[in-house]
């Protein structure tokens, strides 16, 4: 989890409002929820004295900004994944939609599974089926709690 304070520390802290928000703190929140992008803070990009902060911020936010971040905020770190399938088998959506496959510990057979293991690492498809997604989202964490290597996180 990336904290708002961590992000805030890397902003100019001038509250200049050029990003369209009243404070740098508000901008930090917007960055984490991905309503704003780093590029919206023009001073940070343009002024040389913020170079270090900018680099730090990009590094901090890399997981959020990576292409792997799905719409639920799920981030998969493929380099950490064992491909063990624990998350695949524990995911309640998989269990409900794929009773003859993932529910009983095997690879998916129904075509409705949202987590599966491809080329040795986990992959998330049909992310809109994830319980954390949409207006009635719930804080499911089955795929995180079952992982031996913290290869999945939600941001």
């Amino acid at each position: 989890m990336i904290s708002v304070m961590e992000v805030y520390q890397l902003l100019p802290k001038t509250n200049c409002k050029r990003c369209g928000l009243p404070t740098c703190m508000a901008f930090a929140v917007a960055l984490i929820s991905r309503e704003k992008t780093i590029e919206d803070c023009t001073p940070l990009l343009e002024e040389a004295k913020y170079e270090k902060k900018l680099a730090g911020l990009r590094e901090l936010l890399a997981p959020i900004l990576s292409a792997d971040a799905t719409e639920t905020g799920m981030v998969i770190h493929p380099e950490k994944c064992y491909g063990c399938g624990n998350c695949v088998v524990a995911c309640p959506v998989n269990v409900a939609s794929d009773p003859k496959g993932t529910a009983i510990g095997r690879g998916p057979v129904s075509g409705k599974a949202i987590l599966m293991v491809e080329d040795g690492v986990v992959k998330c498809v049909n992310v809109d089926e994830c319980r954390r997604f949409g207006p009635e989202k719930v804080l499911c964490n089955a795929c995180i709690a079952t992982c031996p290597s913290k290869a999945i996180e939600f941001i």
Partner: peptide, 11 residues
């Protein structure tokens, strides 16, 4: 492409 092989199996 392979499906369901774990990382060790894929290697």
């Amino acid at each position: 492409k392979t499906m369901n092989l774990c990382r060790k199996g894929h290697a």
